[in-house]
Structures are given as C-alpha cells and as structure tokens.
Design a binder for these strands. Sequence first.
DNA 1: CGTCTGCTTGAGACATTTCAATACGCGTGG
DNA 2: CCACGCGTATTGAAATGTCTCAAGCAGACG
Lengths: 250, 250
Amino acid sequence: MAEIRPLVALRGAMATQDCNACPIRHRAVCAKCAGAELDRLAAMKSYRSWAAGETIALEGDALPFVGSIVRGCATLTRSLEDGRVQMVGLLMPSDFVGRPGRTTAPYEVTAVTDVTLCLFDRQRFEALLIDAPQVASRLLEMSLDELDAARDWMLLLGRKTARERVATLLALVLRRAAADARPLRAELPLGREAMASYLGLTIETVSRQITALKRDDVIRLEGGGRTVLCDDLAALLIEAGDDGDGEMPG
Amino acid sequence: MAEIRPLVALRGAMATQDCNACPIRHRAVCAKCAGAELDRLAAMKSYRSWAAGETIALEGDALPFVGSIVRGCATLTRSLEDGRVQMVGLLMPSDFVGRPGRTTAPYEVTAVTDVTLCLFDRQRFEALLIDAPQVASRLLEMSLDELDAARDWMLLLGRKTARERVATLLALVLRRAAADARPLRAELPLGREAMASYLGLTIETVSRQITALKRDDVIRLEGGGRTVLCDDLAALLIEAGDDGDGEMPG
DNA sequence: CGTCTGCTTGAGACATTTCAATACGCGTGG
DNA sequence: CCACGCGTATTGAAATGTCTCAAGCAGACG
C-alpha cells in the first residue's frame, strides 16, 4: 500500500470524470440508470480522496454527503466506551457510503488504503431517489446484499472458532482477488489489527491462527505476511467451517 | 425437516382485514402509501398464521411470498454444518419477511410465539415496487434500519462479555415493553435457548448471567424466570456496556 | 403421581485473552 | 553501508471467561 504520490491531487476535489469510463459504473448505485437519470447523478457528483489511515467520518459526526467507493478500501467500526472496537463493515469499490435520510454517521468510517469516493450531495441525492426509480431500486438491492453479508458475519462472530474465522476471511480475500491463476494469490488489504477488529479477536490470536494454517499447509505466506497464497481453496473453505458460499461483507 | 401441521384454525387463510384497522398500518412496509397504492397492496394481500415453534421457512427453501409480521415474534437463524446455530434476526410486528428479487430463504425463519403474517405474492409485490415509490422508499428505510441493528449486534457478538450481552438483551426487551409504569416489567418472548442463540452464548451461560444480575440487584424475576423486573434501567444499561441507545434488532 | 420440558447449578476442560518479550521489515541519518 | 528507531508481526507463559458434561430442580400436564 502507501505508495508515494503528490498529496495535492489526493486531497482536494479531482477533475470530473466520464461516468462511462468509471471502473464501478456497472456495479455501484448508478449501475441500473442511464440517460436523464445518469445525467442528473453526474451533475451532482464530485470526487474526493483520503490517504490510508485517514478518518473519513467519526462516530456521531455530521456526514454531509453520501457516495460510492471508486477505488481503495474503507472500514466501518463501532466502539464501546472503554475502547473495545468492532469492525462492522468493510467497504470495497462500488460499495455505498452513508445513508439517505440521516445526517450523522452511526459508525466511524476510516480509509484502510488510499480511497477515492464519488460523492453526492446528500439532499440532492435524496431528492433524486424520489423520482429516479432505477437508483432507488439499485440502492435497495445493495442494502439487502449488505444486510445478508452482515448476517453471515454475525454467524462468524457468534459461533465460529478463531481458526474458522481467520480461514473465512482469508478465503474471502483470495476469492475476491480471484485471478484464475494457480496458486491463488492475494495481497491483504487489511493488516493484523484490522483483521482482528473484523473477526472479533485479538491481534495475537489472528497471528497465531495464520501461523497454524501455514504450519498445516493450508496456506503459504509471502512478503512478510502481507501476501497469502493458497493451492487448495477447497481445503481452506473446509477450515472456514461452512461451504463458504456467497459471503461478502459490506 | 418434518413439517408438522396438526393445527387447525391457525394455519389456513384468515379473513381479509381492513388495512385501516391494522395494528401495523403506520409502521410496516405499507406505512407511507395510501390511495391507489394501498388499494393495490390490499388487493394482493392474504393472512396466514403459524403456531409457536413452527417453521415458517427452512434455510435454502423456496419462499414464495414476502410479507409483514402483524402479530407475534419470529426469528431468523443461520447454522453451520455441525449444528451450531446463530440467530441473525428477531422479527417483531411490522417487520418485513423475505426479500424481493430472491426466491429462496437464506436463513431459517421460525415462529417464536404464535405469529400472523400479512403476505404478498412475491412476483406481484416486485411488480408493485417498480411503480409504487412510497412502498419502495419505506422498504429501503426499513432495510437500512435492520442493517444498523445488525451492525450493533455485531458489536455485541464480537466484543461484549456474557454479562454485557445478557444485560443488553434484557434492556432491549424492557425498553420495548416500555410501559411507563415503575418498576419496568416485561415478559420475555424468548426462552433461554433462543436468548442464547441470539447472544452467541450457551444456555447455561445465559442462565448464570441472569442469576448473577439478579444476585447483584440489577434485575428481579417473576413467573419462574419468564418475567423480568427492573427498578433502575440506568444501572442495567451500565451493565450493558454502552449507553444502550437505539439498539433494536431486526 | 409420574413424566416432560425448560431452567438452574456445579466442577472441570479448553480456547482465547492478557501481558511481556522478541523478531522482522524498512526508512532515516550518520 | 551500517546502526538506529519505529511500527507491525510473531511467539511464549500464565490468567481467565466461557463451554462442556452431568446432575438437580421447578412448574405444567396428563
């Protein structure tokens, strides 16, 4: 991660981009709209970027926009007063940030890698929702997918062992990277701390389970533990406890 | 799993009811619609009831309808192949069951108490969504609320201690019962097994923590442990670990 | 009055956390 | 080029919270 690049371009508004060239055009909230609807969306959009590690919104803060992740990876976390933290969402390109109808963020939003968002002014977006059925319909579909993902994650948090949790996450990352090349290979977007936060474990337990999975020849590591290789995804999925279908957190 | 259907009046279709007299009219998916839209909804609705303990839909089963809970309490559960079970949703009156655009249930749906649903044929409901913006908008709103609730529950499952989990659930139930009478009193809709399933714990741990909370004078019990009393909700919320605002599972 | 089901209680086993130390990768500055 | 320091990851040993297994108890119902 953390490539070096002029901070100037990173932070301010970026040049408006042609939606048809957008990498998430067919998957984001705009996926199903076209013509006049798309024009209205394009007219209210703007781009903004955050560097890895930066906070996009604090728990309880005003969040004056909604938007789509164009590039990078962000997390949603909720925390207890004594400092315990649980990740409750992992946002990847095309995922939607913010909630129409609400002005404050119920969780902290953090950039894990460098992130670029395609922002929409919240009020104008809400107005659009009323008479742009394709946008509203796509947003509903995406929300229901996230709900399913959240519920799969509840099963993990409530019932899976540490080994199963780690295997589940690794399988997810490997599957998403999903080049058909063998062996499967993926660079982890999340460090150990973020993984622990996601999995409801401590850093140490995550580390131990990754080591154990390596020792048992289920996975291999490269690049100082930031890259995972897997020759036999089926074996990893067995370690994950369920067949592993369809899990994909939002 | 064997469908047992010995029960008589409970299962068949019930007489159609006037929507304006419906107890969930102003909270369910129909809340914001009126006039022609409401007429269309009313025209496709039917009622059906299940007795406490009955299965409404199995994991992976075809679910030919969507609908609203009119009366009673149902749960969504997901399970691992070796039998471990995690509840992932607790549905109360006005909550929505099923998902437009999907024909099979991703979780098992079970009646906890006697339950009555107001059903809509899935295909006709989907058609309605396209040109009934008030229904679509309300459904989006409800889905986003459920997503928030699911994420709060992820914090509980990932980071809270057994005592905090039990306190959180009891506070939720007491708050929902919410008669302003003091002391706060509520009959638990969930038995110990369902509570354990919800909280990611075992029955024994739930029982022990309830006993401990009683021993420490945070709550009192009546009716053989099925009714909870609380003189000091603030104290219970402290035990719950966070301030306890807004948590309400869907 | 016995049986069933749901709830409670106890004692020991076990997984994960906690606390502490060490190792690694990497950019910086001498 | 090496020494240093810093953040991140690994490993170890002990503490602890929850689970497991097993028994006992209470109320509901025939």
